[in-house]
Design a protein around this nucleic acid. Structure first.
Lengths: 340, 340
DNA sequence: TTGTACGCGTTATCAT
DNA sequence: ATGATAACGCGTACAA
């Protein structure tokens, strides 16, 4: 099975420490012995035991991605696989591993919390869009474990990576205004999620700027799912909007179906713009005009920031400044709003 | 930070060993001291250090889910999030952690392989639909690390969990035959993936039984993506089929769009049945008749089997029998084939 | 440059 | 039932 340092040392005729130095690229070892040791390593098929190494260094090179229960339900939305792919990609590059923890109803979250945060297996963790009132984040502070949240968080101490949700929502709404729409409805997300808040704010801001109505009836709350978007759109249709901004592409796809179900045409009767630019935005008919956010990049950035935080903490004590990053969004014009 | 066994022992006025026994529910410890130790544990806020424990026990309670590069591309298909959710769910229940490794182009797969299989961090791993010619599986045997594949594998020694792909494909095709269709086309998956093979075989079997044509022109190879399904359907339409069986719902959704793009109606002009029963099968218009496979259950079962394999190996040496499990599929009739 | 010796936090074996 | 003590495999001051 697994050879040990001692065996390699014996085989190379040196001491254990020397082999260890070779493995960790320590400078002070003669080229001669280095070569000798390398050979022995090859020959034995030696691989360092990560667990033992972790015990000695107090570092595991394992990060955690924790998905709050409220978000686990949305896990099939392409957003998460994409973000996750970005995160694992970055981990691959940096030589880290990623433990994925979805909080589910079957296990009490306090137990999950303990297993995740206090096991000692994790160098740090990424919170996948923990909502404002999530007990997760306070818990992490209490535990003193390095973490990065995906999505902004009002607490000053929270490191996060976010996208310009508000700016994106403004672009989306402006686009519809530019096309001459007056009655522009919005399908929002759950009120306790900051992306939903910010996208709503961006919409309201533009509506207000142009002195357009944004009454209660023009705003419906979805849940970021396609079914939710469909239901929300059904409500909204009673108000006869000529355009809709959906806070996610999944909801936009649902809205498209609701609109069609009423015998209305897109974009002729109702124009629609989404948010995310997930793959299906290009496969809907008509293709979805949407706000692109660099989803994989978010995951990548989150792990890179986290590694920085971990390294920084190790280096400078707890003095490291809070790290934050807000990625830009982009308007992608396709067919669902008519030609501009 | 993290208290240690010694501190608890000192605080409780016993030896380290006794505290260890209490933690591991060892029987031989008096109720009196047990209570005393429990109290000390509470008071210190002690939590066992998982890494140290792993070094001593040679068990990490961490499983790996490894996704071959060919499959990483399909990672946004709802199949994977669902399967993953099932797997993490089972891990939660059993007190295991799950490391997710997506093989990507950015890091050479031999390096990834080493990191995954030889790090010592993993008690075992799940291969997510490794295809037949994937170097992954031979590598795992060479390494002697316990694993379970998702999807059947011809090698006798491979533990796997699979679904009755062939039976499902038969049901799908039979359903179309029952509805009176003669020219039934099929959109298959990549030839090197066993689910694709099996679904094709099921289709061919039924076509042959009913002496229906299954010529080259009636079979197109997709890639399990929506775009691929669309392209495949476009080819097939030249043959004027009256029905199509798509080997995945994603491809079926693409096919629906291709059919519509030709001005044809579903199910009137072309009936269609998919495979998977992912959430979007219920949100397409018309809703998709499909073959349901219990996707989350697959993930759950994979980790449970894997844990069995690991425990079995620990218990009986390498004598444990190969474990296999084939889950049933189910025909779900919705609107995309017309009424039966 | 190289080797010695100790520590990382547990579990496990063996006395007592 | 309890307590020393030896692993587990590696990193790393410290000494040589």
């Amino acid at each position: 099975m697994s050879r040990t340092l001692d065996e390699v040392a014996k085989s190379a005729g040196v001491s254990r420490s020397t082999v260890s130095r070779v493995i960790n690229d320590h400078p002070s070892v003669s080229d001669e012995t280095r070569a000798k040791v390398q050979a022995a390593i090859e020959q034995c098929g030696y691989r360092p035991n990560a667990v033992a190494r972790s015990l000695a260094t107090n570092r595991t090179n394992i990060l955690g991605m924790v998905v709050p229960e409220s978000v686990t339900k949305l896990f099939t939305d392409p957003y998460f696989p994409l973000m996750l792919r970005g995160a694992t990609e970055a981990c691959n590059r940096r030589g880290y591993h990623l433990i994925l923890s979805l909080f589910t109803a079957s296990v009490e979250s306090s137990i999950m919390h303990d297993r995740i945060a206090r096991s000692g297996y994790l160098d740090g963790l990424i919170a996948a869009n923990a909502s404002l009132d999530d007990k997760l984040i306070p818990g992490l502070f209490a535990e003193g474990i390095p973490f990065v949240n995906i999505g902004r968080h009002p607490d000053d101490r929270v490191n996060y990576v976010d996208v310009d949700n508000r700016g994106g929502a403004r672009m989306a709404t402006e686009h519809l205004v530019r096309l001459g729409h007056k009655r522009i409805a919005m399908i929002g997300g759950p009120a306790d999620m900051t992306p939903a808040q910010d996208r709503l704010d961006g919409y309201l801001e533009v509506m207000s700027t142009h002195r357009l109505p944004a009454s209660k009836g023009l705003i419906a709350e979805g849940d970021f799912t396609e079914a939710g978007g469909r239901a929300a759109m059904l409500e909204l249709l009673a108000e006869n909007p000529t355009a809709v901004f959906a806070a996610s592409d999944s909801m936009a796809v649902g809205a498209v179906k609701a609109i069609r179900a009423q015998g209305l045409r897109i974009p002729d009767d109702v124009a629609i713009v989404g948010f995310d630019d997930i793959p299906s935005a290009r496969t809907v008919d008509p293709e979805l005009t949407t706000i692109r956010q660099p989803i994989e990049r978010i995951g990548q950035l989150a792990v890179e920031m986290l590694i920085n935080v971990i390294d920084g903490k190790a280096a400078e004590g707890n003095m490291a400044a809070t790290q934050r990053f807000v990625l830009p969004t982009e308007l992608i014009v396709r067919g669902s709003c008519g030609s501009s």
